[in-house]
Amino acid sequence: MSTAQPTIVLLHGFAESREVWTAFTRDFPDDYRLVTPNLLGFGTNVHDIRDYSMEAQARYLAEYLRQRGVERAVFVCHSMGGYVALAFAERYPSMVAGLSLFHSTALPDTEERKANRDKNIDFIQRHGVEKFMDSFVRPLFAPDNREKLVDERCFLEEIGKATPEASIIGALKAMKQRPDRTAVLRKADYPVQFIIGKDDVAVTVDSLLPQISLPAESHVLILDGVGHVGFFEQPAVTRRAVLDFAGRVFNSEE
């Protein structure tokens, strides 16, 4: 059974869950159907996961959407969620009406980033997920927001600490191994949105600027004083940007 209702699929990032979207989407219009899955290994989706690769996540997502009658949607994707969405778009392009990369990238890990993934895995194996999350989340916020948004920071830390070690390590390995998917942006016959934080240390503005010219249609929002979690750091601005983007996409398809 399919649905003709305009659908927005929101994909969370690494060490997160669908709960990161709860406050962000509270004021979304009822016109939209919102689908917020937990990716493999996260939230409540933590049982019997053997493959954390972006390709496995994409296959899971396709089946998840088919079971819910979603044939085509706008995808709004934070960080690792963007890696999953790009793998999904590569395999199921007809299901993508629009793609919003929310602090995400089509580039693979650099050698330095791969080495950092290995260091993080080693740290987790020696000290556990809880200690890792104590140091991982804080730098994701822009410097001025790290003390200002303590509740939001603690919320993300709690989600991460509740995530099984196998999921954290599995996702780190999968992100390290993901390929370059800039070709997906070049081939995109749907609009692509980039939401970029100037203070993002995880996906830097410099690494994203060359990507914004790749799709045939790009929409770009670059935010001052924002790090890697704009839905907490500038919720009103990023919410408006996502809704405007979705509105343009769905209006063009009518």
Results as ranks from 00 to 15, higher is better:
residue 2 S to L: 11
residue 8 I to Q: 02
residue 9 V to A: 01
residue 10 L to E: 04
residue 12 H to M: 03
residue 18 R to A: 14
residue 21 W to S: 01
residue 22 T to P: 01
residue 25 T to A: 08
residue 28 F to N: 06
residue 29 P to L: 06
residue 29 P to K: 05
residue 32 Y to V: 03
residue 34 L to D: 06
residue 34 L to I: 09
residue 37 P to D: 06
residue 40 L to Q: 10
residue 40 L to Y: 08
residue 45 N to W: 04
residue 45 N to G: 10
residue 51 D to I: 05
residue 52 Y to M: 06
residue 53 S to L: 09
residue 54 M to D: 06
residue 56 A to V: 07
residue 57 Q to S: 13
residue 61 L to E: 04
residue 66 R to Q: 14
residue 66 R to G: 13
residue 67 Q to C: 11
residue 69 G to T: 05
residue 72 R to D: 01
residue 72 R to C: 05
residue 72 R to K: 14
residue 75 F to K: 04
residue 78 H to P: 03
residue 81 G to K: 05
residue 83 Y to H: 13
residue 85 A to K: 02
residue 90 E to V: 00
residue 91 R to Y: 04
residue 95 M to V: 04
residue 98 G to S: 01
residue 98 G to R: 00
residue 106 A to Q: 07
residue 112 E to L: 10
residue 113 R to N: 11
residue 113 R to M: 12
residue 115 A to K: 10
residue 125 Q to F: 00
residue 129 V to K: 02
residue 131 K to Y: 01
residue 138 R to C: 03
residue 147 E to R: 07
residue 147 E to V: 03
residue 148 K to S: 12
residue 150 V to H: 12
residue 150 V to Q: 14
residue 153 R to Q: 15
residue 154 C to W: 09
residue 160 G to Q: 03
residue 160 G to F: 02
residue 165 E to W: 00
residue 169 I to T: 10
residue 176 K to G: 08
residue 181 R to K: 13
residue 181 R to C: 09
residue 184 V to S: 12
residue 187 K to Q: 15
residue 187 K to I: 00
residue 187 K to C: 12
residue 192 V to Q: 03
residue 194 F to I: 11
residue 197 G to A: 12
residue 205 V to M: 14
residue 206 D to A: 15
residue 206 D to V: 09
residue 209 L to R: 13
residue 209 L to K: 13
residue 212 I to Y: 07
residue 213 S to D: 14
residue 213 S to K: 15
residue 214 L to F: 07
residue 214 L to H: 07
residue 214 L to A: 09
residue 214 L to E: 06
residue 215 P to E: 11
residue 215 P to F: 05
residue 219 H to P: 00
residue 226 V to M: 10
residue 228 H to W: 00
residue 233 E to G: 06
residue 239 R to W: 00
residue 240 R to W: 00
residue 243 L to Q: 06
residue 252 S to F: 01
